[in-house]
Amino acid sequence: MNDFLIYLLILSGSTYLIRVIPFVAVKESITNRYIKSFLYYIPYSVLVAMTIPSAIYATGNVISSVAGLIVGGIFAYRGKGLTVVAIISCVSAFLVECIMLLF
């Protein structure tokens, strides 16, 4: 238990500090065009790095995962909001899982 608390402190403490220190330290707005551009691209590249390829294994089944992603992707392309796309992806994956159970 003692061990758990020390581990918890390291785990949550290091995660907290790595988030907060840069956030508190950078007060001025960055003017360098290249750094600005880098920071502009970061959110998109982080999201894609988390999604591709691991999302195709998300449900534990490649077919239902890809189905969910394609249907969700189409709705996202048409400009639907985050919640709608998230729910539609789940429902599509779920339906494909159900269909696959039948066969």
Binding site: A55, A58, S64, A76, S89, C90
Partner: peptide
């Protein structure tokens, strides 16, 4: 898959 659907959006 919800979280990834959100990423796509």
């Amino acid at each position: 898959i919800a979280i990834y659907g959100m990423f796509l959006a």
